[in-house]
Protein backbone atom coordinates (compact mmCIF):
# COMPACT_ATOMS: atom_id res chain seq x y z
CA UNK A 1 0.00 0.00 0.00
CA UNK A 2 3.00 2.23 0.32
CA UNK A 3 3.13 2.31 -3.41
CA UNK A 4 -0.44 3.45 -3.75
CA UNK A 5 0.06 6.16 -1.19
CA UNK A 6 3.24 7.25 -2.93
CA UNK A 7 1.55 7.45 -6.28
CA UNK A 8 -1.36 9.39 -4.90
CA UNK A 9 1.07 11.74 -3.23
CA UNK A 10 2.88 12.12 -6.52
CA UNK A 11 -0.37 12.89 -8.24
CA UNK A 12 -1.20 15.63 -5.81
CA UNK A 13 2.31 17.07 -6.01
CA UNK A 14 1.81 17.13 -9.74
CA UNK A 15 -0.88 19.69 -9.22
CA UNK A 16 1.60 21.96 -7.51
CA UNK A 17 4.06 21.45 -10.34
CA UNK A 18 1.38 22.36 -12.85
CA UNK A 19 0.70 25.49 -10.86
CA UNK A 20 4.35 26.41 -11.08
CA UNK A 21 4.38 25.57 -14.74
CA UNK A 22 1.35 27.35 -16.10
CA UNK A 23 3.01 30.75 -15.89
CA UNK A 24 6.03 29.44 -17.74
CA UNK A 25 3.78 27.86 -20.32
CA UNK A 26 1.91 31.11 -20.82
CA UNK A 27 5.03 33.18 -21.27
CA UNK A 28 6.53 30.68 -23.63
CA UNK A 29 3.37 30.27 -25.63
CA UNK A 30 2.65 33.95 -25.96
CA UNK A 31 6.06 35.52 -26.14
CA UNK A 32 8.24 32.58 -27.08
CA UNK A 33 10.29 33.37 -24.01
CA UNK A 34 11.95 30.76 -21.83
CA UNK A 35 12.10 32.60 -18.57
CA UNK A 36 15.05 31.11 -16.73
CA UNK A 37 14.16 33.18 -13.69
CA UNK A 38 10.71 31.65 -13.42
CA UNK A 39 11.49 29.39 -10.50
CA UNK A 40 13.15 32.17 -8.58
CA UNK A 41 10.05 34.28 -8.96
CA UNK A 42 8.10 31.71 -7.00
CA UNK A 43 10.65 31.99 -4.23
CA UNK A 44 10.48 35.77 -4.38
CA UNK A 45 6.75 35.50 -3.87
CA UNK A 46 7.32 33.31 -0.86
CA UNK A 47 9.70 35.81 0.65
CA UNK A 48 7.32 38.66 -0.09
CA UNK A 49 4.78 36.63 1.82
CA UNK A 50 7.18 36.32 4.71
CA UNK A 51 7.70 40.03 4.65
CA UNK A 52 4.03 40.90 4.38
CA UNK A 53 3.16 38.67 7.28
CA UNK A 54 5.99 40.03 9.37
CA UNK A 55 4.87 43.58 8.76
CA UNK A 56 1.13 43.24 8.95
CA UNK A 57 0.73 40.16 11.09
CA UNK A 58 -2.15 39.01 8.96
CA UNK A 59 -2.96 35.32 8.73
CA UNK A 60 -1.12 33.43 6.04
CA UNK A 61 -4.16 32.71 3.92
CA UNK A 62 -5.07 36.38 3.84
CA UNK A 63 -1.60 37.27 2.70
CA UNK A 64 -1.87 35.17 -0.43
CA UNK A 65 -4.06 37.57 -2.42
CA UNK A 66 -1.82 40.43 -1.34
CA UNK A 67 1.28 38.64 -2.55
CA UNK A 68 -0.41 37.62 -5.80
CA UNK A 69 -1.40 41.18 -6.47
CA UNK A 70 2.06 42.52 -5.72
CA UNK A 71 3.65 39.91 -7.94
CA UNK A 72 1.23 40.60 -10.77
CA UNK A 73 2.13 44.28 -10.68
CA UNK A 74 5.81 43.36 -10.54
CA UNK A 75 5.29 41.12 -13.54
CA UNK A 76 3.70 43.85 -15.60
CA UNK A 77 6.39 46.36 -14.74
CA UNK A 78 9.24 43.93 -15.33
CA UNK A 79 7.77 42.88 -18.66
CA UNK A 80 7.27 46.42 -19.91
CA UNK A 81 10.78 47.41 -18.93
CA UNK A 82 13.44 44.75 -18.80
CA UNK A 83 11.90 41.78 -20.55
CA UNK A 84 10.55 43.75 -23.48
CA UNK A 85 13.97 45.28 -24.04
CA UNK A 86 15.52 41.84 -23.98
CA UNK A 87 12.91 40.22 -26.24
CA UNK A 88 13.26 42.91 -28.86
CA UNK A 89 16.95 42.15 -29.04
CA UNK A 90 16.54 38.50 -29.77
CA UNK A 91 16.31 35.10 -28.19
CA UNK A 92 19.94 34.96 -27.18
CA UNK A 93 19.70 38.21 -25.27
CA UNK A 94 16.46 37.10 -23.63
CA UNK A 95 18.07 33.91 -22.38
CA UNK A 96 21.03 35.80 -21.05
CA UNK A 97 18.90 38.45 -19.37
CA UNK A 98 16.56 35.98 -17.70
CA UNK A 99 19.52 33.88 -16.65
CA UNK A 100 21.18 36.97 -15.24
CA UNK A 101 17.97 37.85 -13.46
CA UNK A 102 17.85 34.40 -11.95
CA UNK A 103 21.36 34.66 -10.57
CA UNK A 104 20.78 38.18 -9.31
CA UNK A 105 17.57 37.20 -7.55
CA UNK A 106 19.02 34.10 -5.99
CA UNK A 107 22.12 35.74 -4.69
CA UNK A 108 20.21 38.81 -3.67
CA UNK A 109 17.80 36.75 -1.62
CA UNK A 110 20.68 34.89 -0.11
CA UNK A 111 22.31 38.13 0.84
CA UNK A 112 19.26 39.46 2.61
CA UNK A 113 17.64 36.36 3.97
CA UNK A 114 20.61 33.99 4.30
CA UNK A 115 20.63 30.61 2.68
CA UNK A 116 18.48 29.03 5.32
CA UNK A 117 15.08 27.74 4.49
CA UNK A 118 12.01 29.35 5.79
CA UNK A 119 8.47 28.24 6.20
CA UNK A 120 5.28 30.21 6.06
CA UNK A 121 4.03 28.91 9.35
CA UNK A 122 0.49 27.79 8.71
CA UNK A 123 0.43 25.70 11.78
CA UNK A 124 1.42 22.09 11.94
CA UNK A 125 -2.01 20.74 12.53
CA UNK A 126 -3.29 22.25 9.34
CA UNK A 127 -0.47 20.82 7.29
CA UNK A 128 -0.37 17.36 8.64
CA UNK A 129 -4.05 16.81 9.10
CA UNK A 130 -5.10 13.96 6.90
CA UNK A 131 -7.92 11.63 6.21
CA UNK A 132 -7.95 8.01 5.27
CA UNK A 133 -9.69 6.08 2.58
CA UNK A 134 -10.30 2.50 3.34
CA UNK A 135 -7.86 1.40 5.96
CA UNK A 136 -4.52 2.14 4.45
CA UNK A 137 -4.66 5.09 2.09
CA UNK A 138 -3.78 8.34 3.77
CA UNK A 139 -4.18 11.70 2.12
CA UNK A 140 -3.09 14.93 3.69
CA UNK A 141 -5.79 17.56 3.52
CA UNK A 142 -3.40 20.26 2.58
CA UNK A 143 -1.92 18.42 -0.33
CA UNK A 144 -5.38 17.75 -1.63
CA UNK A 145 -6.26 21.39 -1.16
CA UNK A 146 -3.23 22.48 -3.17
CA UNK A 147 -4.19 20.10 -5.96
CA UNK A 148 -7.72 21.45 -6.00
CA UNK A 149 -6.42 25.01 -6.04
CA UNK A 150 -4.17 24.12 -8.95
CA UNK A 151 -7.06 22.68 -10.93
CA UNK A 152 -9.22 25.68 -10.13
CA UNK A 153 -6.51 28.10 -11.21
CA UNK A 154 -5.93 26.22 -14.45
CA UNK A 155 -9.64 26.12 -15.09
CA UNK A 156 -9.92 29.83 -14.42
CA UNK A 157 -7.02 30.57 -16.69
CA UNK A 158 -8.52 28.46 -19.44
CA UNK A 159 -11.82 30.28 -19.17
CA UNK A 160 -10.12 33.62 -19.07
CA UNK A 161 -8.11 32.93 -22.19
CA UNK A 162 -11.11 31.60 -24.04
CA UNK A 163 -13.80 34.09 -23.22
CA UNK A 164 -12.46 37.36 -21.92
CA UNK A 165 -11.39 40.32 -24.00
CA UNK A 166 -7.80 40.27 -22.86
CA UNK A 167 -7.69 36.51 -23.01
CA UNK A 168 -8.60 36.71 -26.67
CA UNK A 169 -6.10 39.45 -27.20
CA UNK A 170 -3.38 37.39 -25.57
CA UNK A 171 -4.15 34.52 -27.89
CA UNK A 172 -4.34 36.82 -30.88
CA UNK A 173 -1.03 38.49 -30.14
CA UNK A 174 0.52 35.06 -29.67
CA UNK A 175 -0.79 34.02 -33.08
CA UNK A 176 0.12 37.08 -35.06
CA UNK A 177 1.47 40.16 -33.38
CA UNK A 178 1.25 42.45 -36.38
CA UNK A 179 -2.30 41.52 -37.24
CA UNK A 180 -3.23 42.21 -33.62
CA UNK A 181 -1.68 45.65 -33.90
CA UNK A 182 -3.77 46.32 -36.96
CA UNK A 183 -6.83 45.57 -34.84
CA UNK A 184 -5.78 48.21 -32.38
CA UNK A 185 -3.96 46.14 -29.76
CA UNK A 186 -0.80 47.47 -28.20
CA UNK A 187 1.10 44.22 -27.96
CA UNK A 188 3.39 45.58 -25.27
CA UNK A 189 0.42 46.08 -23.01
CA UNK A 190 -0.93 42.63 -23.84
CA UNK A 191 2.44 41.07 -23.10
CA UNK A 192 2.43 42.93 -19.82
CA UNK A 193 -0.95 41.46 -18.89
CA UNK A 194 0.29 37.99 -19.79
CA UNK A 195 3.36 38.48 -17.64
CA UNK A 196 1.22 39.75 -14.79
CA UNK A 197 -0.88 36.59 -14.99
CA UNK A 198 2.20 34.41 -15.13
CA UNK A 199 3.73 36.11 -12.12
CA UNK A 200 0.45 35.90 -10.27
CA UNK A 201 0.05 32.17 -10.76
CA UNK A 202 3.64 31.45 -9.86
CA UNK A 203 3.10 33.50 -6.72
CA UNK A 204 0.28 31.21 -5.64
CA UNK A 205 2.54 28.26 -6.25
CA UNK A 206 5.38 29.81 -4.33
CA UNK A 207 3.17 30.56 -1.35
CA UNK A 208 1.83 27.01 -1.44
CA UNK A 209 5.35 25.65 -1.48
CA UNK A 210 6.23 27.82 1.47
CA UNK A 211 3.24 26.49 3.34
CA UNK A 212 3.69 22.83 2.48
CA UNK A 213 7.40 22.71 3.09
CA UNK A 214 9.89 25.52 3.16
CA UNK A 215 11.53 27.86 0.72
CA UNK A 216 15.14 28.86 0.32
CA UNK A 217 16.93 31.03 -2.21
CA UNK A 218 18.43 28.20 -4.21
CA UNK A 219 15.17 26.32 -4.55
CA UNK A 220 14.20 28.39 -7.52
CA UNK A 221 16.75 26.91 -9.81
CA UNK A 222 17.46 23.73 -7.92
CA UNK A 223 14.07 22.28 -8.42
CA UNK A 224 11.27 24.61 -9.36
CA UNK A 225 12.42 25.89 -12.72
CA UNK A 226 13.42 22.50 -14.04
CA UNK A 227 10.29 20.82 -12.70
CA UNK A 228 8.08 23.50 -14.16
CA UNK A 229 9.77 23.25 -17.51
CA UNK A 230 9.62 19.47 -17.37
CA UNK A 231 5.87 19.63 -16.76
CA UNK A 232 5.39 21.88 -19.76
CA UNK A 233 7.52 19.77 -22.04
CA UNK A 234 6.08 16.44 -20.98
CA UNK A 235 2.54 17.68 -21.26
CA UNK A 236 3.01 19.57 -24.45
CA UNK A 237 3.17 23.23 -25.16
CA UNK A 238 0.01 25.13 -25.80
CA UNK A 239 -2.28 23.20 -23.56
CA UNK A 240 -2.91 24.05 -19.94
CA UNK A 241 -4.40 20.65 -19.27
CA UNK A 242 -1.33 19.18 -20.88
CA UNK A 243 0.69 21.02 -18.29
CA UNK A 244 -1.40 19.44 -15.56
CA UNK A 245 -0.86 16.04 -17.13
CA UNK A 246 2.83 16.74 -17.36
CA UNK A 247 3.00 17.79 -13.75
CA UNK A 248 1.16 14.70 -12.63
CA UNK A 249 3.40 12.41 -14.64
CA UNK A 250 6.42 14.11 -13.20
CA UNK A 251 5.09 13.86 -9.68
CA UNK A 252 4.23 10.20 -10.05
CA UNK A 253 7.60 9.41 -11.60
CA UNK A 254 9.32 11.06 -8.67
CA UNK A 255 7.18 9.23 -6.19
CA UNK A 256 7.93 5.91 -7.84
CA UNK A 257 11.62 6.74 -7.89
CA UNK A 258 11.53 7.68 -4.23
CA UNK A 259 9.89 4.39 -3.36
CA UNK A 260 12.75 2.51 -4.97
CA UNK A 261 15.37 4.63 -3.29
CA UNK A 262 14.87 7.98 -1.59
CA UNK A 263 17.79 9.57 -3.40
CA UNK A 264 16.38 8.57 -6.78
CA UNK A 265 13.49 10.96 -6.47
CA UNK A 266 14.80 13.84 -8.56
CA UNK A 267 16.65 11.56 -10.93
CA UNK A 268 13.48 9.71 -11.82
CA UNK A 269 11.75 12.91 -12.74
CA UNK A 270 14.65 14.10 -14.86
CA UNK A 271 14.86 10.72 -16.56
CA UNK A 272 11.27 10.96 -17.71
CA UNK A 273 11.90 14.53 -18.82
CA UNK A 274 14.90 13.54 -20.89
CA UNK A 275 13.03 10.63 -22.41
CA UNK A 276 10.25 12.90 -23.58
CA UNK A 277 12.72 15.48 -24.80
CA UNK A 278 14.52 12.97 -26.93
CA UNK A 279 11.65 10.93 -28.28
CA UNK A 280 8.69 13.28 -28.27
CA UNK A 281 9.79 16.86 -27.72
CA UNK A 282 6.41 18.23 -28.64
CA UNK A 283 4.96 16.61 -25.57
CA UNK A 284 2.19 14.13 -25.02
CA UNK A 285 -0.84 16.23 -25.88
CA UNK A 286 0.54 18.18 -28.77
CA UNK A 287 -0.29 17.14 -32.28
CA UNK A 288 2.36 18.70 -34.43
CA UNK A 289 6.13 18.80 -34.29
CA UNK A 290 7.94 21.20 -31.99
Amino acid sequence: MDWVNAIIQGLLTGGLYALFACGLSLLFGVMKVVNLAHGDLAIVAGYIGVGVIAVSHMPVLWSIPVVVLLMAVLGYVLQRSLLEAAISRGELTTLIVTFGLSIIIENGLQQFFTANSRGLGVGDSFITASFTIGSQITIAWFNLAVFVVAVVVLLGLQQYLSYSKYGRLIRAVADDREAAQLSGADYRHVFGIAAAIAFGTVAIAGMAEGMVTTISPSLGTDTILLFAFASVVIGGLGSLWGTLLGGVILGVAQAVGAQINPSYEQLAGYAVFLLVLVFRPQGLTSRGAQ
Partner: peptide, 28 residues
Protein backbone atom coordinates in the same frame (compact mmCIF):
# COMPACT_ATOMS: atom_id res chain seq x y z
CA UNK B 1 22.96 13.15 -28.83
CA UNK B 2 20.33 13.98 -26.22
CA UNK B 3 20.20 17.69 -26.88
CA UNK B 4 21.35 18.08 -30.47
CA UNK B 5 18.01 18.75 -32.03
CA UNK B 6 16.74 21.23 -29.49
CA UNK B 7 16.22 24.87 -30.23
CA UNK B 8 17.68 27.70 -28.23
CA UNK B 9 15.53 27.90 -25.11
CA UNK B 10 14.88 24.17 -24.90
CA UNK B 11 18.59 23.55 -25.39
CA UNK B 12 19.46 25.81 -22.48
CA UNK B 13 17.13 24.12 -20.07
CA UNK B 14 18.06 20.67 -21.31
CA UNK B 15 21.74 21.30 -20.64
CA UNK B 16 20.79 22.52 -17.18
CA UNK B 17 18.86 19.33 -16.59
CA UNK B 18 21.75 17.24 -17.88
CA UNK B 19 24.14 18.93 -15.50
CA UNK B 20 21.79 18.23 -12.62
CA UNK B 21 21.49 14.62 -13.68
CA UNK B 22 25.25 14.21 -13.90
CA UNK B 23 25.60 15.66 -10.45
CA UNK B 24 22.86 13.51 -8.96
CA UNK B 25 24.36 10.39 -10.49
CA UNK B 26 27.82 11.14 -9.19
CA UNK B 27 26.47 11.93 -5.75
CA UNK B 28 25.19 8.38 -5.64
Amino acid sequence: WLVARLRLGYFAIATWVLASVVMLVIEQ
